[in-house]
Amino acid sequence: MASRSEAIDTAAIVRQSLHGRRFSPGGLAFELSLLVMLLVSLAVLVTLLADIISGALPVFRDRGIDFVTSGITLDSATAGVWTGLVGSVGIAIIVAVIAFPLGLGAAVYLEEYAPDNSLTRFIQTNIRNLAGVPSIVYGLLGLAVFVRLVDLIGLGGSASTGGRNILAAGITLAVLVLPIVIITASEALRAVPDTIREAGFGVGATRWEVVRHHVLPSAAPGVLTGTVLALARAFGETAPLLVIGVATGFFSAGSAGLFDRLTGPYTALPVVVLSWSRQADPAFKENLAPAAILVLLVVLFAANTAAVVLRNRYDRKW
């Protein structure tokens, strides 16, 4: 008897478990708490954006594009971000010129040429570690090495600039983003199937010919996506620039020529945000700094969107 009723109970329990209770308070509470976490994260970020946009709106309403195209001034009515934008774009170009070939070259070596030996593994570990080094440490490296190097080879500008110029900034940030470029380019190269390479070798092509004509073109979208993301990172960096002597106050390059711009003092968009947040006139921290942040975010958003579009549009599924 006892055993029989037990069997019935077991069947009932199994059936109940399989159907599940309609209402499971524990499970619902768990799901809700997760949802709350997600919503709080998003709410915080919405607050951040709302705070910045509401501060920035009056500036764009009153001055429109004029805010973007005017230079740094001390009057809240005329100050604009152009000087900072030019500096940041200049830095980004130098970063691209240095980090793209170096990063791609290193990735091609590691993925296509490198034998599986301890040197290769050491280089790979080293690159991963470099990617995690805090940006301010790169600033110290820039101050100790690149600023002096630029001055030493005669590109330091006047004695007062002494190498604290956009070239040194570009080199420092290029070194900072290099690990990102290498890692993303490696991933893109790894995604190219070996059959492509084998087909190339099969018709007698050398490794370089295979890489140049088959692997690189296939990996190009991924490589470019990674590079764009790395440039976006460089565009938003502030701390290393502070350490290597970016101009933090009033700055005007006027109509200086290209060479003077490269070797003379410079400023950058994120630094403009910092310097406006400490101006005495409250209009700077209440409206102009948020407006500058908005310009910065729009540029970064555009770069990120470009990267995503690039990836989705041209990335081949093998």
Binding site: G105, A106, V108, Y109, F122, I123, V133, A144, L178, T206
Partner: peptide, 30 residues
């Protein structure tokens, strides 16, 4: 072709070794 192949490989190796140089420079300067 083989000589070019070797040259190209060395260029890429040099690019990869730059990352080690950066690490050494960081440690040395700090």
């Amino acid at each position: 072709r083989l000589r070019r192949e070797l040259r190209v490989k060395r260029v890429f190796l040099a690019a990869a070794v730059v990352s080690i140089a950066i690490s050494i420079a960081i440690v040395a300067s700090l």
